[in-house]
């Protein structure tokens, strides 16, 4: 880039007020009655700067994967806006303009959690990796082979792997193929939906290293979804903590891990095991069960389990308030900020 930008640099991915509601209905005598809705993702906003990684963490069922799939319009969002480099992503993917849709899809790619389910068992690796090239009409057919081998090399696989079938690979190797497939169209943003959760620990580290290397080499931007906090800390620049469909805290990774301000963030982080028998664990165990998504607590959703909850938490929902260095927090009684 030569010279300063003519406009203030924007974040690559901007999500504003994203919502996904599932209606719940009961079959009556003659017709179905709508009896409520599940707010799987409820009005969440965040952004990811180019070349950075935002970690999205939270318990199972808090809406992480729904967020990821709604961003890519794999499920239809109920409300909200997603912008990629300033362009309206959801509108383009919904819209009738197929060329624009494909152009947008090329910029954002998805890596799946389970590498055993995400590759077509009847296709060779070369077929799987060529498909994006065919769909997007990127290269002439004779050039596909070279590109496939290039992609395999990029993710640390050998050229002779191209003609094998998924069942001949280990979980880690399959996940490499999944990543190579996402990279086939030269995307800017990768949505990594628990990419290491189904791998064992030694392989997990290799895949995380691969992701870090690819980010540095290709200037990729990641939205990294995980419930594994150690992986999040390793890969992320910033972290957003989700609880029951809402983001409760966003902060730089070191700040969040060292001094979480939301009581839920602290409880989540204290669940990381510390490999030191002499250090007493400051476990901050939450009491009670996760509330049912059908029967969400009013006002602050965390008040049923929060050690700091007071009357105001049951009456008013805490707004998301911006803090220093792009952090944000939604809590009436936050923990003390770290000493400057």
């Amino acid at each position: 880039m030569t010279g300063p930008l003519p406009f203030p640099a924007r974040d690559l991915l901007e999500v504003r007020g994203l919502q996904k509601l599932y209606p719940v209905s009961r079959r009556g005598m003659f017709r179905r009655h709508r009896i409520g809705e599940i707010r799987a993702v409820d009005d969440i906003s965040f952004s990811v700067a180019r070349g950075q990684t935002l970690g999205l963490v939270g318990e199972s069922g808090c809406g992480k994967s729904t967020t990821a799939r709604a961003i890519l319009h794999l499920i239809d969002a109920s409300g909200g806006e997603v912008r990629l480099g300033g362009q309206d992503l959801l509108q383009t993917l919904r819209g009738p303009d197929r060329k624009a849709e494909l152009a947008m899809r090329r910029r954002v790619q998805y890596v799946f959690q389970d590498p055993y389910l995400s590759l077509n068992p009847r296709w060779t690796i070369a077929q799987t990796l060529s498909e994006p090239l065919r769909v997007h009409d990127l290269l002439p057919r004779p050039a596909w082979r070279d590109r496939v081998i290039e992609l395999l090399d990029l993710v640390g696989l050998e050229p002779h792997h191209a003609d094998r079938y998924p069942h001949e690979f280990s979980g880690g190797q399959r996940q490499r193929v999944g990543i190579a497939r996402a990279l086939a169209v030269d995307p800017e943003l990768l949505i990594l939906d628990e990419p290491v959760s189904s791998l064992d620990v030694s392989v997990r580290a290799q895949i995380l290293n691969l992701l870090a290397r690819l980010q540095a080499e290709l200037g990729l931007t990641y939205l990294f979804i995980s419930h594994d906090l150690s992986s999040v800390r390793f890969l992320s620049t910033r972290v957003a903590v989700m609880y029951l469909g809402k983001i409760v805290e966003i902060a730089d990774v070191d700040r969040l891990f060292e001094a979480p301000r939301h009581p839920y963030s602290r409880a989540l982080l204290s669940a990381i095991p510390v490999p030191d028998p002499d250090r007493p664990s400051a476990r901050n165990t939450l009491l009670g069960e996760i509330p049912s998504a059908m029967n969400m607590p009013a006002a602050c959703r965390f008040h049923t389990r929060c050690p700091r909850a007071s009357a105001v938490c049951k009456a008013h929902e805490p707004p998301m308030e911006p803090g220093p260095q792009g952090s944000a927090l939604a809590c009436h009684h936050p923990l003390e900020p770290p000493a400057p």
Partner: peptide, 10 residues
Amino acid sequence: DFVTAARASG
């Protein structure tokens, strides 16, 4: 998921 993957690739 491989069907979702195909959808995601357009």
